[in-house]
Design a protein around this nucleic acid. Sequence first.
DNA 1: CTGTTAGCGCTTTCAA
DNA 2: TTGAAAGCGCTAACAG
Lengths: 342, 342
Amino acid sequence: MAERVTIAQVAEEAGVSAMTVSNVMNGKPGASEETRRRVTEVAARLGYRPNVSARNLKAGRTGLIGLVALDLTSQYGLEILRGVADELAGAERELLVNATYQDAVRETERIEFLGRGLVDGVLMIAPVLEDKTVELLRRRNLPCVIIDPRRLDVALPRLSVDNYHGMRLGTQHLIDLGHTRIAYIRGEEDLESTALRYQGFQDAMRLAGLEVDERLVAECDFSYTCGFRTASRLITEHRPTAIVAGADLMALGAVDAARANGLDVPTDFSVVGFDDLPQAAQTFPGLTTVRQPLHDMGQKAARALLSLIDGQQLLMDHMQVGTELVVRNSTAPPPGDARTGR
Amino acid sequence: MAERVTIAQVAEEAGVSAMTVSNVMNGKPGASEETRRRVTEVAARLGYRPNVSARNLKAGRTGLIGLVALDLTSQYGLEILRGVADELAGAERELLVNATYQDAVRETERIEFLGRGLVDGVLMIAPVLEDKTVELLRRRNLPCVIIDPRRLDVALPRLSVDNYHGMRLGTQHLIDLGHTRIAYIRGEEDLESTALRYQGFQDAMRLAGLEVDERLVAECDFSYTCGFRTASRLITEHRPTAIVAGADLMALGAVDAARANGLDVPTDFSVVGFDDLPQAAQTFPGLTTVRQPLHDMGQKAARALLSLIDGQQLLMDHMQVGTELVVRNSTAPPPGDARTGR
DNA sequence: CTGTTAGCGCTTTCAA
DNA sequence: TTGAAAGCGCTAACAG
């Protein structure tokens, strides 16, 4: 449908060779001012734009970066995406997002597809990374950086967050406030981060001389809905004074569950999340949570990928970024505790 | 970096011509079982994948659809995106998302870029559409469908929602519950939908014999934060019994503002939103709102674009979809009103 | 059933 | 300063 104006047409119309048009359009030297002006004028008049396929075919590269995400429907991936986009904006590269929408099988297909010369490199957010996908990336020698891998044993350049210490931080905050009956909501079991965060929780408790009551620990997918339901159950059955959730959405569900059970947050009940999604701040009262520097992660990963594409070796194959406790208004000393939180 | 295996290498290794390899790889008839097997085996062993640039150059099409959005950071655009993705999944076409991140100037660039033969057609979500962008789409004759245009006077195929009747519906709901002092929070002023929704609000009020108090009408961007702040002000200064917001995020801000001012929702104060984002259901209490069929809109727009690409004329240049009132728990009769909401 | 030719639109190389 | 030739990797059209 779209009528294409080719370089040949411009050349003919301007009375020069295609080569000259090419040079002028690319700002190459070696063309008289007069020719340059004429060519520019004709190109504009005809609405000529170089065809990317032809150019890529010739150049063997595309200037495009592909981003593959299992699920781009949460703010989590989007914050990372923004970081990537910001970093790439200054690098004359375009970003193509090719999401897979909760379909692990398609993940390999996406890599397959992007790796056929469509992009120069790939970023993946929290990919499943089945063995054959890794194998594919290997064989094609396609530059790639994994952000927040689900499995840590994958031998590809990757960037993850310090889940263990992050969760120790969040748990310690509640302990410092005087809580002892602290419940924990785990995230999805197929992520190693779920185990690491839980480990951080456990260690923080143990080091404070507190026992981890197994009945106060529950599993959940990462959703608000499941967080609400699970927290509701924990609260009615076991009466903890606080909950730590492995992700903000679940924490927000827990806040509302407490409310639905007639508890005021934070006066009667405290909640700590993990992520620091925009929603954590945009809620009343603000959610105390462990911040992952999502935007930073996107930037760092993009920068690493650009080095790889330039043929440089990365200093470290496994990059890690730290976390930070963000105290808002979902946490306070437990009811009946006189202290103001030392 | 990525070492490319070409069709020629496969042909040589398999002892056949490139043409035969091409035919086998594309499942074309006319190749003996024996040859077919040998070629397939060699291709797999060498890790051969057809180069998309070359293929596109030859074919003059790419099988790709571009999606341009000013801002993909809200669930609004993402829900539409899912609809688009679902529709395209069954059409052997890939979706490339190329977001512009709140930078109106880049919108034209994105179209420019995608229109250089990278994609066969473009979908735009709530674009600014400066005149030169429209002109560009025209000249390139690039198939395009606009979803939720900011201006309604653009002569391009487009899909919008019935904002006017939707807001009448939402307002009427509060009127039916017995509210008379209803505040209204407008969205951004550069969208025609903002004016249309407000018109719907006004007409619903007038037809019920209620006066629209100008002091109860405020402007806002579409954010939670602004909704919170604005609602807070309206509540303290003018004591309405309900608020209608031109978007869910603002409505959620209003719910929390009511709470922050010691009012219970919905007992003391009612809130109605517009959109029905996932958050509207995932909050406590659920938000009563006017539903835009976002997923549907994405599907419809994608389907229309595919027809255009196939060279068909659209039946209507301006498609419109309806809305629906979703009653949850953020609305009730005003305090002091004995009825249960007839 | 298989191979040869030609060309998609562009740019690198080299010659004029 | 400009242009001609060649080829990037693939496939439609035709020939064998």
